[in-house]
Design a protein around this nucleic acid. Structure first.
Length: 211
DNA sequence: GACCAGGTCCTTG
DNA sequence: CAAGGACATGGT
């Protein structure tokens, strides 16, 4: 990471802070956040909400219920979120990991962040974004979610890093609190939706940080 | 009808 | 490592 990378990162975060708080950006109980973290993979949030509502109607919207439910029941319930077969397998893997490994989400939160993150990444279907989404928005850990928007926006600003390297770079510019990490991810997504569509990515203020 | 969405995994070069 | 494909529904 170069000096200019750090300064660009600082500028981006400052721009976001000036936009104000995003509030409760990822709604729901910790269990719903965990389930939603898988459902939202490559999927619009409105469709995730439909799937979550159907899980609730069928009394399947908890880690324990999903752990014990038959796969076809889950598949049918989450159909609106798309990729319903593979997501069912992923939810199953995650539920087993949580129930059999810890007993529940509460107990899981006692583990230290770096170790927990490594363990989550070993679960099939849980990549960096899903793991960090769970850690930050369900388990209250100060960790930054890096998604496509984050990479696009930072790339637009001239920061040529991605994945875990980008994550470290941005985190080193943030205070170590869960709230700030939540807010920043929310900003990246909201700003990305607003400005980083195919057409408008030349018009946003971030672009001016380049060079 | 084409294109995309709050990704991840697996296979190939 | 980079690139390409599979997974699937619903909105523009």
């Amino acid at each position: 990471m170069s000096v200019s990378d750090s300064s660009r990162a600082g500028e981006i975060l400052r721009i976001f802070q000036n936009r104000g708080s995003r509030g409760v950006w990822w709604p729901g109980t910790p269990e719903e956040v965990v389930i939603g973290a898988v459902l939202t993979q490559q999927t619009r949030w409105e469709n995730v909400e439909r799937a979550l509502a159907r899980l609730k109607e069928r009394k399947l919207c908890s880690i324990a219920a999903l752990h014990r439910a038959a796969e076809p029941k889950i598949e049918d319930a989450i159909r609106p979120a798309g990729f319903y077969r593979i997501k069912t397998r992923r939810i199953k893997a995650l539920a087993s990991f949580i129930i059999e490994g810890f007993g529940g989400i509460k107990e899981m939160a006692d583990y230290p962040l770096p170790e927990l993150r490594r363990m989550l990444l070993d679960v099939n279907g849980v990549g960096a974004e899903t793991a960090d989404g769970i850690l930050c928005f369900a388990l209250d850990k100060p960790t930054l979610v890096i998604d496509r928007y984050t990479e696009r926006i930072c790339g637009c600003a001239g920061i040529d890093e991605r994945g875990d390297r980008l994550k470290s770079l941005l985190e080193s510019a943030l205070p170590d609190t869960m709230t700030v990490h939540r807010e920043m991810h929310a900003h990246f997504v909201d700003y990305g939706k607003e400005y980083c569509g195919k057409k408008r990515c030349n018009e946003c203020g971030i672009r001016k940080l380049h060079a």
